[in-house]
């Protein structure tokens, strides 16, 4: 039995950046089959959009709400009939008559293995949801043995604002895209090297103060695994005082300029420990500048007390 339901697509999910005024023809609905159910989704939507419209959970790591999908992690793969290999749901667009399965043996195997391969080589402890997926898919990163090669390396601390802990890096390209043409256009970092040795780097690995970095912190905002982290957060984690359950988030407006970006202040024990901006915000799309992101010390300058 197949059931037909008209899917509700949250269009902001497809591209949250300021949309151009639609001048073309309205988008047609495409009928596809998802796990045995016939559904209609707008033309141009991805399989992931379709899954979300039906409430089908699909794990993602390198998918970034505000960035073009690079489909590098392969965690979101699904099985599409008549396709020799599995397809990344985050970037494959729906086609009429597509028959998609999100929970087959092959899909579960690939997701389990991607989690295991990452888990055995990268520190995923600061990546939300991963532990749950590991359990769900039965991933056991320890079975690759003690000698399994990892990306473990010392944390790079070369400035007072944020640290780069590439032991946690899954090479999702999001920081590079955010630093480059998709958001900041600073082009301070790149993927360098090849294969397992591929890594995020400045030119010749120079420290950030010598690079083109402008400390906007937009790379931190998109990092899915905590490889890029406020120095405050890093220091508190080192001291064991970082406690997200004890934190409050308060939205306010940045005081520095007339753009008026929305800031979300993350506070713990009445101290600002981190600043973000909502990803779905029409002005910032989660991005800030150095002042909004890091210029909060004046708020808690206790010398004045």
């Amino acid at each position: 039995m197949t059931q037909t339901d008209t899917a509700r697509i949250d269009t902001t999910r497809i591209d949250t950046r300021p949309q151009e005024t639609p001048v073309g023809l309205p988008r047609r609905a495409v009928t596809i089959q998802l796990d045995g159910h016939e559904i209609k989704v707008p033309e141009g939507a991805t399989i992931l959009d379709a899954c979300e419209s039906r409430g089908t959970a699909v794990p993602t790591l390198c998918y970034g709400d505000t960035l073009d999908p690079v489909n590098a992690c392969r965690l979101c793969v699904v099985e599409v009939e008549n396709s020799r290999v599995l397809v990344p749901s985050c970037s494959r667009k729906v086609e009429p008559g597509m028959v998609v399965h999100t929970d087959t043996e092959r899909v579960r195997h690939s997701r389990k293995m991607v989690l295991e391969l990452l888990g055995s080589s990268v520190d995923l402890s600061a990546a939300p949801s991963v532990a749950g997926w590991m359990k769900q898919y039965g991933a056991d990163p320890t079975r690759y043995g003690e000698i399994a090669k990892t990306v473990k390396q010392p944390v790079k601390i070369d400035n007072e604002l944020y640290v780069r802990d590439y032991s946690r890096c899954i090479l999702c390209y999001k920081c590079v895209d955010a630093c480059g043409e998709q958001w900041q256009n600073s082009f301070a970092i790149t993927v360098a090297g090849r294969g397992f040795d591929a890594h995020i780097s400045t030119e010749f690995g120079v420290e950030l103060p010598e690079s083109a970095c402008v400390y906007c912190g937009n790379c931190i905002a998109v990092c899915p695994t905590g490889a890029l982290m406020f120095k405050t957060e890093h220091d508190m984690r080192e001291l064991g005082t970082w406690d997200e359950s004890a934190q409050r988030q308060t939205d306010t407006i940045c005081p520095y300029c007339g753009v008026g970006c929305t800031l979300t202040l993350h506070t713990q024990d009445n101290e600002i420990v981190k600043v973000t901006s909502p990803l779905d915000h029409s002005v910032t799309s989660g991005n800030l500048c150095i002042k909004g992101r890091f210029g909060f010390q004046h708020v808690q300058n206790h010398k004045r007390d």
Partner: peptide
């Protein structure tokens, strides 16, 4: 394959390393 993997996707970037490790063992 470990040398020539471009490193873009996880199955190949880490998989070719794990394949070689298992083969060596």
């Amino acid at each position: 394959f470990r040398d020539e993997s471009c490193g873009q996707c996880v199955p190949c970037r880490v998989g070719t390393v794990r394949q070689e490790e298992a083969l060596v063992r």
